[in-house]
Design a protein around this nucleic acid. Structure first.
Lengths: 197, 197
DNA sequence: CGTCGCATTGATATCGCTCAAATCCGGTGG
DNA sequence: CCACCGGATTTGAGCGATATCAATGCGACG
């Protein structure tokens, strides 16, 4: 059983929950943008198609993430959202959200904080993926996402999934972790990865 | 002369402009977070340091971008901002911004739209950098950032800068563009890159 | 007309991808 | 309790794409 996440409290009252089955299409490009979504569990791919019909992935949403937040500010979806794993989805009508944002400045600040945090995280990930070597990416992850004075990081899921997030194959990740441990740069204890020195 | 960008109208009234010289420190990690910034021109690196003192880049702000938007929601900066090129900076006091956000729902929606657009862009960039081959990254860029039915893209600055944005060396970008053109996948006309077929 | 940075192409090295195989582990059913 | 299974983890070998180092042409600008 993989982890499930709850809709953040501020938004929960506006959300309708429903299960999600692999293969479900949440919305299609060009549909009227009437909902914002919070993925409680599962995986949703947002993609678009190029002129020759090739799929271009815009974003892969994981459990605990909002997606299609931009529905608030445009009237049509610019991509298609497809569930690629079973899960659960919370749906928030843009009309409700817009109304609440206009009425309740405190709520608006909370919503803004959510979006801003995701932006910060995404930007950090961009820089991480811009690094050329696997070891540098791992070090970057530990420094930016780790907790404590000597940064410790516990992967959300499997190491395979972590490899995907780092833009590496799982083999490359395993090998690099092993060699960093041999070199005394990191330590691993019960699934946690700790940056040393 | 590189391009200069204007502070978006909604925010302009709150902003104070000043020149920026390479080497200027805009803020340091742990300083009280009292300002949000809009970079009109130049380049600013946001970074943090690991336990062994290695620099870890969180984000590189380019002209036309806001940075440190998260100052609104935390009381201290979590990284240091350093100008790495001359330019111009617009400074917005978080207190003013917070007040305006609370008073004026229309303004709040505009600010939210700005942040949401940056998030969408950043996420697309993450997926682009997750692609393994140079050609796939270029194709992704053209499809997601290009305009028109057969996506056409005009780089903001030089091809060297574009290479950096794509996580490639400039040599790799030149070579891949040349080979895609030879293969009839793209065309280049006066600095524009057009995806064909 | 010299200098500087961008654009371009060549040669080589290297790191991570790909294919392959062995082991470990938790869960499941007999 | 044990045999079995699927997925995660781990290590090996070889190859290929991109980084790296290098050189040249070109245009802008002083």
């Amino acid at each position: 059983m993989t982890a499930s996440f709850e809709v953040p409290g501020a938004v929960a009252a506006l959300a309708t929950r429903r299960p999600l089955v692999r293969g479900d299409v949440v919305f299609r490009a060009n549909d009227p943008a009437r909902h914002v979504y919070f993925l409680e569990q599962g995986r949703v791919v947002l993609h678009r198609f190029g002129p020759a019909g090739e799929e271009v992935v815009i974003h892969v949403a994981h459990g605990g993430e909002f997606f299609a937040e931009a529905s608030l500010h445009s009237d049509r979806y610019h991509c298609t959202a497809l569930a690629v794993a079973d899960g659960a989805l919370a749906t928030i009508a843009t009309s409700d959200l817009r109304e609440r944002l206009g009425d309740d400045p405190g709520f608006a600040m909370q919503w803004l904080a959510i979006v801003a945090r995701q932006l910060r995280k995404s930007r950090a990930r961009v820089e991480r993926l811009s690094l050329r070597s696997a070891a540098e990416r791992i070090r970057h992850l530990l420094v930016t996402e780790g907790h404590g004075p000597t940064p410790a990081y516990r992967p959300d899921g499997t190491l395979r999934e972590l490899a995907g997030e780092l833009g590496l194959t799982h083999e490359a990740l395993y090998r690099t972790l092993a060699s960093m441990e041999r070199a005394g740069q990191i330590e691993r204890q019960a699934g946690r990865i700790v940056l040393v020195r």
